[in-house]
Amino acid sequence: MGSSVSMKSFNAYYADKQALKDVNLEIPQNSIYAFIGPSGCGKTTLLRSINRLNDLIPSFSRTGTIAVGEHDVYGLRGRNAVSRLRRGIGMVFQQPNPLPMTVMQNLLLPVKEHYKDANSTMEALAAENLRKAGLYEELGDRVHKAALLLSGGQQQRLCIARALMLDPEVMLFDEPCSALDPISTFKIEDLLMEIKKEHTIIIVTHNMEQARRIADHTAFFYQGEIVEWGATRKMFMEPEQELTQKYIRGVM
């Protein structure tokens, strides 16, 4: 199995403050990779560096490389290269962020600009992704109602379905369940297990049980460095580093 995302000597800074120190990591294809660690440890920074969303922060700077597939993320050249990169990398945020329009319009938003297929084709694709997200039967006619009227869990699954519309190679999840109730959380976890068959998933989570339940691999971040990484089962059963042990046992 090839690696889908690979980071080499990656350093990130906010102004003078170093947020990530010499990160080297290979994310294998069609698997779930969890980033865990205490707040402010840099895991979200790394996640947002993969689709260059940190570029929106004026004080952000970095060295080192990140590659998605064979594309060097920070070496892209050409018009709209970053937009095209982001179309190949889906992202789901902590707060569900459907836009203030109908469910269907939310789904069509990412495809309408770039594809000239007939509306019926795109709506069929939207229906397929809604079905994947378990929303198709659940919503019924409500797909033509405002997305903001859905529950938090439904909104988040809509955001996942929306990201799937572009059939991205990699999907980034930034604590996707931290604003949700346990039942919605389980639904999303089931969905992630389903999605990973066709996509590579990276998930930042504060919930270690979640990492244990769904992740194939886990990396533990502490103060901007990756302390330990590897197969989730091994990491939780017999961590090599004392720091990891402490964090997993909840004494840190």
Partner: peptide, 14 residues
């Protein structure tokens, strides 16, 4: 809301 803006960029919108 910033999530709207970031969400739009994350979907590859210009």
């Amino acid at each position: 809301p910033i999530p709207y803006i970031e969400g739009s960029y994350a979907l590859g919108a210009s």
